[in-house]
Design a protein around this nucleic acid. Structure first.
Lengths: 230, 230
DNA sequence: TGGCGTCATTTTATCGACAAAACTGCCATT
DNA sequence: AATGGCAGTTTTGTCGATAAAATGACGCCA
């Protein structure tokens, strides 16, 4: 769970705060599965791992608690929050209806430049994809492009709160994505799935777009199920 | 055997950690408007006010950031996040559709004991209300009973995440509620508004319940508007 | 008057230290 | 063999001190 750091550090913008840096690194490490679910987060260990003192660490972990990535027990420290099939199903349901709403409103409100952003984001994502590679920074970059695409879809929904909700749910979902191994992922044709959504969006066919999106999100469910049922 | 420790834990919520206590106090102070929007939160001031060191304070404030109650600027400290009409409208919209969903699902799934909880919560709320009083602890108690009632309505939606979302939105909304003075509040017949919702719920009339709920939430909009338009 | 650099003061972010709590391994007792 | 203390070790939560950054005051000069 260590050395893919430079890329993320470089991207962390303006962060003269030691704490912001460690926050983003821990967050990404949890999302990418480098810090596995349920793992104890001992302050001394993290100090060595992330090269900082206890105060920035504790602040960073505190930020991650309301986001649902970290749990805390009184006098028993921090740990990475768990992943369960029940939680995933809840998440999937939340995502389907909140993004559906956001997508419908974007389709109503979005103009040509919105369409352009989507097409562009899809292009970059599809470029990144064939080059599949389980190596950490590649995976991080792919995740970034994937998120950029999905956020572009709903960018014109007109509600900052709804955008933030979708963003948070997306990141929580990526914890589950990182659980499926790469072979399984390669079975799906991700680019085609996304193209299908875009095609419906460009036709301004909200119903088709929403159902393609739901279908897209639902596919991970079938990959996750065998992993989380013991 | 009930030992003393459990009793204390049960009585003081989140008990032994100094930080949990200060977290809840600051949170409530922001929601109730005792810490007004935009106000600078200097650590030294807070140390005196809440009687603790810098570390618990910074952790508590960090928890409040993702919840949207506190903003942070690099090397410029913390401040209470702002309230605007735009933000309120976004919030109102989010609340209407997320609680509508939660309420519909509760009406589908909830049983007799769910109905009982609602009736009970309404009873306690209506008891607390006529005794109106702008005094702080009364206001806090009324807020608590009001929230208990609304959470009881959606308690059977079956989605922990949706419940948490509604809970967070409710608390953010209460910041706006605390802006309207008590005279204005007294003009409304709060108990009647809530009874109307309950009546529709007990008839299992989801459409009527949802629209009564939306109507209820919308009423604050008219009270807020003159306050936030300068 | 009004903009600008400089210096002193305040405020922030971080570190190291310490008391209290939790965990661990061991031994005696049943 | 299992249970229940008991001491030693780790780990947590909090405090005070300190360097870096921001803020504010003041005088200088156009």
């Amino acid at each position: 769970m260590v050395n893919a750091r430079q890329a993320i550090e470089a991207q962390s913008d303006g962060g003269k705060l030691l704490m912001s840096d460690v926050y983003q690194r821990i967050r990404e490490d949890i999302i990418m599965g480098r810090l596995e679910a349920g793992r104890k987060l001992r302050i001394e260990e993290l100090k060595a791992e992330y090269g900082t003192g206890a105060s920035p660490l504790r602040e960073a972990l505190s930020l991650l608690i309301p986001e649902g990535f970290v749990d805390r027990l009184e006098n028993r420290g921090f740990r990475v929050s768990g992943v369960t099939l029940t939680d995933f199903d809840d998440l999937l349901d939340m995502r389907c209806w909140s993004e559906s709403r956001a997508l419908r409103r974007s389709i109503e409100r979005g103009g040509k430049e919105w369409e352009g952003e989507i097409v562009l984001a899809l292009y970059w994502f599809s470029q990144a994809f064939p080059d599949h590679d389980a190596h950490d920074d590649r995976a991080s970059e792919r995740r970034r492009l994937h998120k950029t695409f999905h956020m572009a879809l709903i960018a014109e929904c007109g509600s900052p709160m709804l955008m933030e909700l979708c963003s948070r749910l997306f990141d929580r979902n990526d914890r589950y994505r990182s659980l499926v191994n790469f072979a399984a992922t390669a079975e799906r044709n991700h680019v085609a799935e996304h193209e299908q959504i875009v095609e419906a969006v460009l036709r301004r066919d909200a119903d088709a777009a929403v159902s393609a999106l739901a279908e897209h999100y639902g596919k991970l469910r079938r990959q996750i199920e065998p992993i989380l049922t013991p």
